[in-house]
Design a protein around this nucleic acid. Structure first.
Lengths: 207, 207
DNA sequence: ACTCTCAGCGTACAACTGTAAGCTAAAATA
DNA sequence: TATTTTAGCTTACAGTTGTACGCTGAGAGT
């Protein structure tokens, strides 16, 4: 009943996932991973892989889920910071996201690449995670600003797209160039906030 | 002197490039291509590949250049349309871009994927092409609106990012969903124009 | 205590990969 | 015309990949 068996299984399953994440890097994407190498790094025989996943695909989808989870935790953390430290919403969010890219770069790389990757299932999975992200931001905007749901969504989508993309570029930058990039995104987010605000005010006048 | 030799060489070189583009698809990215398959489709022996390219990498970089060229031609076409048909700048640009995605989806896919791909050289090459794109738009904005160079650049960067990203999503959509997506991007671009305009006006007041 | 389940192993194989070496015939050059 | 150059070929090899098959030994269930 203690489940020594199941516990060990869970452990090597996690070892596989971690091995796979470890092998991701700037010049190694998920589709370059081989089942055998992952198994090797996890310390099991190649054929034992199948005791845990049907496929490399199945492993990958699990990894996408995990990365999405990290992303959502991150967002919650950003909201806590905003509430406590009372910093600017835009600034805090962008800085938090940049930290995600540094601390969990391989998880970010997975999302980034598989978003336009080779498997429809992967693309859909990433799109789902990103959509969560967008929706949470949209709800926030909707409650903070007087703003109808549709505009809030469109606005959030734009913001997430820009931040996500800046993250992708940031992966290849350091130091000053990176700071400049960060500054540019912040401006871009301000544009959107302003612009959306304008259109919303106009809509309200009509009503 | 006629160069029958060089002419034939150029021809099979192009055949290799086209074969490679043909093998790209929704579920086949450049890194999945094998030298042998490309050679096979081009109708030459695997080892003859090396008479034209040192590497698959070299082929790929050539392909990125070609895709970038197509992209720039597209942009010129969009500007012509705007000048002649006198349509809205934003609308025409977005529609033109969506056409690019349909007509040259494999070229777009290459840019899209290698932008966050596995090779730094590729990423740099794509970034260069995109930067061309941004700069041309920035010049346009700078001349059309009263707008300093930096704001024009930041604004263009945001717009290109959003359109590019929407293109990526459009690849998996059809019909109504796609139209909705197009509509959303157009809104997002309007936000940016408005928002940027606002900040620029403010800057001008100070000066 | 006895049986069942199953995570992990080793072996094996066919498919494919990139690429080295050397030949050939035709175009270019002298 | 004689010589050189070279695009493309064939053959060959070593490496890697996914995965089928069957075994084993230790936990789980009774």
């Amino acid at each position: 009943m203690s489940g020594v068996r199941a516990q060990q299984k869970q452990k090597t399953r996690q070892a596989l996932i971690e091995a796979a994440f470890n092998q991701l890097s700037a010049d190694h994407s998920f589709s370059n991973l081989s089942l055998r190498e992952v198994a090797r790094e996890a310390g099991i025989a190649p054929t034992s892989f199948y005791r845990h996943f049907k496929d490399m695909n199945e492993l990958g989808l699990t990894m996408v889920d995990e990365a999405g989870l990290t992303l959502r935790q991150l967002m919650r953390q950003a909201r806590r910071r905003i509430a406590n430290d009372g910093g600017s919403v835009i600034n805090t969010s962008v800085v938090t996201f940049m930290e995600f890219i540094d601390n969990s770069s391989n998880q970010f790389r997975l999302l980034l690449r598989e978003r336009s990757g080779t498997s429809k299932a992967f693309r859909a999975a990433v799109a789902r995670e990103v959509k969560h992200f967008i929706l949470e931001l949209a709800h926030y905007l909707e409650s903070e600003t007087k703003c109808d749901a549709i505009h809030a969504y469109i606005q959030s989508e734009a913001m997430v797209t820009l931040v996500f993309n800046a993250g992708a570029e940031a992966l290849d930058l350091e130091g000053q160039q990176r700071d400049e990039l960060t500054e540019r995104v912040i401006w871009q987010l301000r544009y959107i906030t302003r612009g959306a605000g304008h259109y919303i005010r106009e809509t309200n006048k009509e009503a």
